[in-house]
């Protein structure tokens, strides 16, 4: 098991480094920097000075190594769009709304989704089952900003119950949290249901019932445990969906979170901020990927020996 963990850790670190190099190259290789003639009409000498100041005149690999050296010291540079603070300072403000709203969304959506999926699987073809399927299909296909827009139209514009945007009071949080929650809710409702149905149809469940085990024990002691594996597998897509959704939710509800800064950094070619955000998000994904793998291995004894 330790060997497996170490191997996965190494493999994911290599992936992370490859991704960071790719992103770095991508952002610098494509023409049109923040201080291009079209973006900032100044004389050549001034531009050269600015480029030198930010180290943009050095070869790419030097820039990359310097950057990585800084990252190791939690130094992501200074954002172009607000030079008065460091990237770290800016981000330490920005992650709060994202975490509060996204976290609340997952904490509400995931258990609700699991419960819905469980109930639907145990009561096939009941109205709850149909509701679960409908919620799952809608939540997984319709983009977050569409859900958000509909929420705003109904609850803010037409009914006037809740504010449409902002971050000030908890009343502002309700709609974004609901929009966030839709993703884990739909994901878990769908996969819990199908994983449960899969397990319920396995011969060992028939054997358990045949030997007279109570339905409660069958479900809670055996079926749930065997259905847990696909539910762990689904954690990663759910995480990706929620994190990606933050861009749209925050753009929609005008929340000053990570997603909003990501969009503004892209719009203004703010390399340090952009790079830092991609870096942090990729790192989060790598960690999530790694954790999902480990959890999967712990739940499934068969994978431990084989390794990957």
């Amino acid at each position: 098991m330790i060997g497996y963990v170490v191997r996965r850790l190494l493999s994911i670190s290599v992936t992370f480094i490859v991704v960071s190099i790719l992103v770095f190259i991508m952002m610098h290789a494509i023409p049109g920097g923040p201080f291009d003639a079209t973006e900032m009409p100044v004389s050549e000498a001034v531009r050269a000075k600015i480029m030198a100041q930010y180290g943009l005149d050095q070869p790419l690999y030097v820039q990359y190594l310097k950057y990585m050296w800084g990252v190791l010291h939690f130094d992501f540079g200074v954002p172009f769009q607000s030079p008065g603070e460091t990237v770290i300072e800016l981000l330490s403000r920005a992650w709060v709304p994202s975490l509060v709203l996204g976290g609340a969304g997952v904490l509400i959506g995931a258990p609700l989704g699991i419960a819905l999926g469980l109930y639907a699987a145990l009561n096939r073809n009941s109205w709850i089952d149909y509701l679960a399927s409908a919620v799952a299909t809608l939540g997984l296909t319709v983009p977050v900003f569409v859900t958000s827009m509909l929420l705003i139209l109904v609850f803010a514009v037409w009914l006037g119950w809740l504010p449409a945007s902002g971050w000030g009071s908890p009343r502002n949080w309700i709609l974004p949290i609901v929009a966030y929650a839709a993703i884990p809710l739909a994901t878990y409702a769908r996969y819990t249901r199908s994983a449960m149905l899969d397990t319920l149809n396995k011969p060992f469940v028939t054997v358990l019932r045949a030997k007279g085990l109570s339905e409660r024990d069958v479900i809670f002691k055996h079926v749930l445990r065997n259905s847990a594996i696909p539910m762990v597998t689904v954690f990663l897509p759910m995480f990706i969906g929620t994190a990606t959704g933050s861009i749209f939710v925050e753009a929609m509800f005008r929340v000053p979170g990570l997603g909003a800064y990501f969009v503004s950094s892209i719009e203004s070619r703010d390399y340090p901020l952009e790079m830092a955000l991609v870096f942090i998000i990729t790192l989060m994904f790598c960690i999530a990927y790694f954790l999902a793998d480990i959890a999967y291995a712990m739940l499934n004894p068969r994978i431990r020996l084989g390794g990957r």
Partner: peptide, 24 residues
């Protein structure tokens, strides 16, 4: 499969956003 692994740790929408912004 390693190429696919790289694609799976990079959130498609974020990367697409980056690419779209860079290519205008």
């Amino acid at each position: 499969m390693r190429i696919i692994e790289i694609f799976s740790v990079v959130p498609p929408l974020l990367a697409a956003l980056l690419l779209a912004a860079l290519t205008k």
